[in-house]
């Protein structure tokens, strides 16, 4: 299949190379579950303003990487640093017994939002409430303010309502605002989850297989949405995806994982031609070219086989 040039041209280079630290810098990350090494000396750099993709066969460690970034798992070794406004925040600190990773909600407040491989919406709530809950986390309204309906609390409520409406409009879910989340169609649920993540005002958005289980039309809409998130809202996007057509269409940079190791990195055309990548995919009987890989199974079983469900 012919490669398509990345839609936005070459990777934007920082004007002042010395000053511009990457938005996210992952160095020498090692994640182990008992005897299994899920991430093996993983290095990853995400520059501000790009759309970057992480690809790799099933079980390569991609979602584990996301989980490390968001504080769900604590990698045994390595560093994760998030830089914004010239201020660098480590997301994992300490070593040995005192190893700590920032808790998921704290990571979110630093500026990283995510969606999940298997959609995790607040099923019994409306689409509006799903997004509103996320938007509200940016405001400090405590129980006293809530009970007494202090003016600050009311103002916050109004702002979040406005923000929620804006976001629902942005992803095109305005009509579905009052529908119960669980009754929405799959593609719509995906967009809702993205809207919810955006409501937390992130600088970095992690999308975990956003196209899994969607039909070609939905994929095209997703492609546009991702680009708009990046260009209109200035959010850096890091996505895990199996759908190569989508990846090639939106990503400006690709990192390839296999068996927990980074085996290739660079521009889409470079990565596609990389022999190690070709071997990784062909060797495991998967075609990097196929636009419609078994999405159903990748959304289903990889959730089980890719990660060992253990809490360290």
């Amino acid at each position: 299949m012919t490669s398509r040039p990345a839609a936005d041209g070459p990777v934007p280079t920082p004007r002042h190379a010395a000053q511009a630290a990457p938005l996210l810098a992952v160095r020498e990350l090692i994640l182990r579950f008992g005897g299994l090494t899920s991430l093996d000396h993983v290095d990853l750099t995400v520059d501000r303003g790009v759309i970057q993709a992480v690809i790799g066969p099933n079980g390569a460690g991609k979602t584990s990487l996301f989980n490390c970034l968001t504080g769900v798992y604590t990698p045994q070794e390595g560093t994760i640093e998030f830089t914004s406004d010239g201020h660098t925040t480590p997301l994992v600190t300490g070593s040995g017994r005192r190893r700590r990773s920032r808790k998921p909600h704290a990571v979110n407040h630093v500026g990283v939002a995510r969606t999940f491989q298997n959609i995790r919406l607040f099923a019994a709530l409306s689409a509006f409430d799903n997004v509103k809950i996320a938007a509200e986390t940016r405001y400090r309204t405590g129980p006293i303010g809530a009970m007494l309906r202090l003016p600050k609390a009311r103002a916050n409520d109004k702002s979040t309502d406005e923000r929620t409406e804006e976001l629902l409009g942005f992803v095109g879910l305005w009509d579905a605002a009052d529908e119960q989340a669980s009754s929405l169609s799959y593609g719509v649920q995906r967009r809702l989850e993205i809207a919810r993540a955006l409501a937390t005002d992130p600088q970095l958005l992690l999308l975990d297989e956003p196209a899994a289980g969607t039909n070609p039309t939905e994929k095209r809409e997703l492609e546009q949405l991702i680009r708009r998130i990046n260009s209109e809202r200035g959010v850096t996007v890091l996505l895990i995806e199996h759908d190569m057509r989508l990846v090639m269409a939106v990503a400006q940079r690709i990192t390839v994982l296999n068996f927990g190791k980074v085996i290739a990195e660079g521009r889409p055309e470079e990565v596609q031609r990389d022999p190690a990548v070709v071997e990784a995919y062909l060797g495991s009987a998967e075609e990097p070219e196929s636009g419609s890989a078994p999405e159903g199974t990748s959304g289903g079983t990889s959730g089980g086989t890719e990660e060992v469900h253990r809490d360290e």
Binding site: T70, V72, K103, P104, H105, A106, N108, H109, A113, R114, F116, R120, L121, F122, A123, A124, L125, I133, A134, T137, R138, R196, A197, A199, T200
Partner: peptide, 12 residues
């Protein structure tokens, strides 16, 4: 509803 999703979206 979903504690993990809530935490991921900034709810302490």
């Amino acid at each position: 509803e979903d504690e993990v999703a809530a935490a991921a979206n900034g709810v302490p």
